[in-house]
């Protein structure tokens, strides 16, 4: 009876679907050979997914999706909780911005994704290239990290419409 009531709750189903999407995107993004690379440039579809989820689900759910996405990414990365902290902040900030000063639509999603991807990539570059004194800093930024941001942005409409469809179909 209880289980049946839970399964009829659209909010629960919707949030479960979003969590499943985060898991799926994390695996697609971080498993070699599952997601296409263009001339060595990799996309990060988790970024538009977390911003879209935070835009629709707002600050608290947004930060929890961010935390989940970041924690999953950290399993593949060698840097403590860098991704979990980053995505927690992104999810919360996007939710707060939509709550207070922005409207939830495709243009704002593009804007938030661009900002989030740029902050992630430049942050990663600063941490792994500039602070470690690595050579070819600017080459790496221009060759991989800025194009990676653009590639991520190209994917963002697809991710946004996926989340939007999910939200519209499963809204109470």
């Amino acid at each position: 009876m209880m289980a049946k009531r839970i399964l009829q709750n659209k909010t629960f189903i919707r949030r479960l679907c979003l969590a499943a999407a985060v898991l799926l995107f994390s695996i697609l993004q971080n498993t070699p050979g599952l997601f296409p690379e263009i001339a060595g440039i990799r996309a990060m579809p988790l970024i538009p997914l977390v911003t879209a989820a935070a835009m629709y689900e707002r600050d608290i759910a947004g930060m929890l999706y961010g935390l989940f996405a970041g924690a999953l990414w950290d399993v593949f990365a060698s840097g403590n909780s860098f991704n979990a902290i980053y995505f927690l902040i992104i999810g919360y900030v996007c939710g707060i911005l939509i709550n207070t000063v922005m409207r939830s639509n495709f243009a704002t999603h593009l804007l938030l994704t661009a900002g989030a991807a740029l902050i992630y990539n430049t942050g990663y570059w600063l941490w792994h290239y500039v602070f470690t004194g690595c050579d070819m800093k600017f080459y790496s930024l221009m060759r991989y990290y800025i194009p990676g941001t653009v590639y991520t942005l190209i994917l963002s409409p697809l991710v946004f419409f996926l989340v939007m469809t999910l939200e519209r179909k499963l809204r109470d």
Binding site: D59, I60, M63, L67, A71, D74, V75, S78, N80, S81, A84, I85, L88, I89, Y92, G95, I96
Partner: peptide
């Protein structure tokens, strides 16, 4: 929302510190 955000953020930072101290390179959440 803000209180929850601060609590989780603090826990993540504490986890990172633990991972550095324990030399495992991964936090309890990880």
């Amino acid at each position: 929302g803000f209180k929850l955000f601060v609590i989780i953020l603090s826990a993540l930072i504490a986890g990172s510190v633990i991972s550095v101290v324990s030399k495992s390179g991964s936090s309890p959440l990880n």
